[in-house]
Write a protein that binds this DNA or RNA. Structure first.
Length: 491
RNA sequence: CGGGGUGUAGCGUAGCCCGGUUAGCGCGCCACGCUGGGGGCGUGGAGGUCGGAGGUUCAAAUCCUCUCACCCCGACCA
């Protein structure tokens, strides 16, 4: 199989697809829009999960699990929620198959029609709030801080591996609070958790903000988002947290008695990140040679490749390599000694580059003689000869340096692609020729937002939290505006 | 869901327009040998319901109909 990748400059989306497939992250399955996540890709997702899960627990959340199937009636209880998801729901209508009498194989047994149809969850608010009604009576039951790791199904028209699949893996947090202020605080706290994760682990800088009304989650009063910028100048929504007000509490009749003895509806939030982050990770760091992984999420942080001719050499090298492996593991560095004799060194080099392994050690007879190693960095594609002495420290430091370097590179790119514009012509010009985020004034109306979207395909990604007050005029209508909002074309 | 395109061995493809022996090639795979500090070389070998179903025909990878999947562009979305 030829492993040569399409260049980003030639065809960005082809490049993306090829990386996902050739780096062995995932592939399409026989079901439209649903992917198979392969072991190497899943290992990265597991690393993301592990860290996020740790962060959720550290902020007081517990994991639970709710059913995959949701009665249709639950779904319609919150009006805007059902409106938002109705068009993309898979529905279970029967519970039995039978052999066709005409020998045409197995068919749906029409006698096994469900009394009430079940929806395959596109998100779990409704079934979770149906449970919360039973769990919450008093302010003493609050706050209720629950997270679930699950799969959901949304019948998307156009799918792309990781970025938009008909089934995806995610976590969804669903919390209930006694006060509005506390719920908002939770929403903001989780946005910060997501931002910290994105920046510290994925090495992916994000902009925190809130969504405009038209981009809000169906059923939310406010949607907070973290927005990342991909290498092709398009934005990617990396995680959202929602302040749901009392909408779901009212829809599912979840009331509690307060300290003062007053009966009131509880306040809700929900928040989620998905396997889409895998796509974000690929598109943030990778290059024309393949995947580039930040050390903190790399399943293999260091690979050791032996170079040898004779069995004696192989044995001597292996002894040294195994010694290093032990030393690295002691330090918590994940290492693979690739002792396969079935593949040649050059082949392995190319393979690990494609798979984004941050550091590669090559060790041969020459090194054994000199007490050296060849150390190659994936991020800079540079090689140097280093001493075997203190190698685990050298590696540990270098992994940190690579993590920082990837973040800084991405940050620099992102910052160079935030452009302030003051007219619509300028807006269109930047969008077309430079791409990236555009900070511009907007009159605050959904109509203007819609018009700009129709003309340019750019949407308001968010109203940045750190937007400073500044008098200005809407780029489209010229009406007064008090702050700039963040526009971009988006995934 | 609308417009356009593509499905031939694990992957990439030639052949299709203009139907006619045994469907060709590269990579990969298997065996053996030479090799080995960046996807190395040689020899031999295995692998195909030509996406699927139906039709036209003496004859279909090739023509027609339907269908499924994927890619690109729209609308929708995490």
């Amino acid at each position: 199989m030829s492993k040569k990748l399409t260049k980003r400059s030639e065809d960005y989306s082809k490049w993306y697809n090829e990386i996902v497939v050739k780096a062995d992250l995932a592939e399409n399955s026989g079901v439209r829009g649903m992917m198979v996540i392969k072991p190497y890709g899943y290992a990265i997702w597991e690393k993301m999960q592990a860290e996020l899960d740790r962060m959720f627990k550290e902020t007081g959340h517990e994991n639970a699990y709710f059913p995959l199937l949701i009665p249709k009636s639950y779904f319609s209880k919150e009006a805007s929620h059902v409106a938002g998801f109705a068009k993309e729901c898979a529905v279970v209508t029967h519970y039995r198959l039978k052999n066709d009498e005409n020998g045409k194989g197995i068919i749906v047994d029409e006698n096994a029609k469900l009394e009430e149809e079940l929806i395959i969850r596109p998100t779990s608010e409704t079934i979770i709030w149906d449970s919360y009604r039973k769990w919450i009576q008093s302010y003493r039951d609050l706050p209720l801080l629950i997270n679930q790791w699950a799969n959901v199904v949304r019948w998307e028209m156009r799918t792309r591996l990781f970025l938009r699949t008909a089934e995806f893996l995610w976590q969804e947090g669903h919390t209930a609070h006694a006060t509005k202020a506390e719920a908002i605080e939770e929403t903001e706290k989780m946005q910060n958790v997501y931002a910290t994760f994105a920046e510290n682990f994925m090495a992916m800088p994000v902009i925190k903000g809130v969504k405009t009304e038209s981009e809000r989650f169906s059923g939310a009063l406010e949607t907070y988002t973290i927005e990342a910028l991909m290498q092709d100048g398009k934005a990617l929504q990396a995680g959202t947290t929602h302040f749901l007000g009392q909408n779901f509490a009212k829809a599912f009749d979840v009331k509690f008695t307060s300290k003062e003895g007053k009966l009131d509806y509880v306040w809700a939030t929900s928040w989620g990140v998905s396997t889409r982050l895998m796509g974000a990770l690929v598109m943030t760091h990778s290059d024309d040679f393949g995947l580039v992984l930040p050390p903190k999420l790399a399943p293999i942080q260091v690979v050791i490749v032996p170079i040898y001719k004779t069995d004696e050499q192989f044995d001597a090298i292996s002894a040294k390599a195994e010694e290093m492996v032990k030393e690295f593991r002691k330090k918590g560095i994940s290492v693979k000694y690739d002792h396969r004799r079935t593949h040649k060194p050059g082949w392995k080099f190319a393979e690990y580059e494609l798979k984004g392994v941050p550091l590669r050690i090559a060790i041969g007879p020459r090194d054994l003689e000199n007490g050296t190693l060849e150390l190659a960095r994936r991020d800079t594609l540079t090689k140097e000869i280093v001493s075997q002495e203190n190698i685990s420290n050298t590696i540990a430091n270098l992994l940190d340096e690579i993590q920082d370097n990837l973040f800084n590179k991405a940050l620099e790119y992102r910052n160079n692609h935030i452009t302030e514009v003051n007219s619509f012509d300028e807006f269109k010009e930047v969008l077309e020729n430079k791409g990236g985020f555009i900070l511009a004034h907007w009159d605050g109306t959904a109509e203007t937002e819609e018009k700009i979207k129709n003309i340019t395909k750019a949407t308001i990604r968010c109203i940045p939290l750190d937007a400073k007050d500044e008098e200005g005029k809407c780029i489209l209508t010229g009406k007064k505006s008090s702050k700039r909002v963040l526009f971009s074309k988006a995934y």
